[in-house]
Amino acid sequence: MPPVIDLNECIGCGKCVDVCSEDVFFGTKDFGKSIEHKPVVTYPEVCWHCNLCVKACPVAGAIRLRIPLAMSVAYKDGPLGNS
């Protein structure tokens, strides 16, 4: 479940933690103080998938949303009318 952080890419700046109004990263210790302090996703189930953490991140690819299977869009693999 979202968000997913690539700890090798993350620079520990804490921007994602700052912008999250749901505070899914709650409990992240000393974020933004050094590269050693990476965000922890504590409450993933309340994520709104608003993408603001992804937009706030200065490093492309360090954070992304993983859409839960339960939210996968349902669709038809071809035109209508052939049912």
């Binding site: 749901e22 189930e45 709104w48 608003c50 339960a70």
Partner: peptide, 13 residues
Amino acid sequence: TPALIGNDTRPFT
């Protein structure tokens, strides 16, 4: 999706 309480048209908060 009751188990994903944040899956809503408005945020969870």
